[in-house]
Amino acid sequence: MASVKSTKTVLTILQLRIFIALFLVMLYFSLTTANFLSQNNLLIMAKHLTVIAVLSLGMSLVILTGGIDLSVGSIVGISGMVAGYLILYGLPVGESIIFFNPVEVAVIACIVGALIGALNGYLITYLGVPPFIATLGTMYIVRGAAMLSNNGATFANLVGRPELDNTGFNLIGNGEFLWLSTPVWLLIILTIITIFIVRKTPLGRHIYAVGGNEQAARFSGIRVNRVKLFVYSFSGFCAAVVGLIITSQLESAHPNAGNTFEMNAIAAVVLGGTSLSGGRGTVFGSVIGACVICALNDGMVMSGISEFWQMVIKGAVIVLAVVVDQLQQRLQARVLASA
């Protein structure tokens, strides 16, 4: 039947919509805005992209289980403050003070991020707090803690001191290796790891199963609580990586860093075709979603669209993405029924 065939064509187009969207956004701004595709601008966009995309990796796993993590922006802030403090003042242990090298600092900050994520997971699983409320709470608590850590002031000039052997922190955000900056490498490596987890391991299956049907997952012998604990910890870890990147790029830690980043991360995941009710979506889709948001943000800034219109357009794009997603679901159901 011709109609079924054309329906299937439409369906294929809808399934590839995020790539089409990325292409169209890039095309539009490259035609209307000079220098949009210049090497310089692409480097700047890559910087912005890593921030949103790394957050969206952790957020993808959380949303795939049917949860949400509003605390990632705050974790970005506090992990930077942890790193800043450790570089400037070290860790007092008894009489002496230990100074860590930048790699150790980064590991500690990531552990702090993962632990905050684990706290989210603990609240949600063992104490039964709904994810939205639990992470809303930690969002405020963690942001407050970041402010308290230095009375709302920044830890500036994080270059380290040669005599303490803790220089080189700025390389995390500004270093370069084989033509790409360190953050881009971090994004690539983390993306590969996340996709590996999701597609190739039992844990990945379990994540989809928990989001698809928690009761069936439980009866199948999946330890639902542990799965959730993992995804929130992982999300916290990803947020800490972003905190490190930003802090390192600026060579200073600001307690307000990462404010509202959670919204961009959620938007990227949703644009990438992941269902907010869980169980459906891909990690790679989220990364492409982050690309779209980034290109849209930077393109609108460069072409001088007013900040107010930027908000309107971004909101409209997100809503449109979900509307199209619903359309695709319905069409898919119809194709399945007619098959």
Partner: peptide, 20 residues
């Protein structure tokens, strides 16, 4: 409600209990 994960494929449903 308790047996199947409807968003998953046949093979994914079949092995979700025995992935180890």
């Amino acid at each position: 409600k308790e047996g199947l994960i409807s968003l998953m494929s046949i093979v994914e449903n079949a092995t979700i209990s025995s992935l180890w």
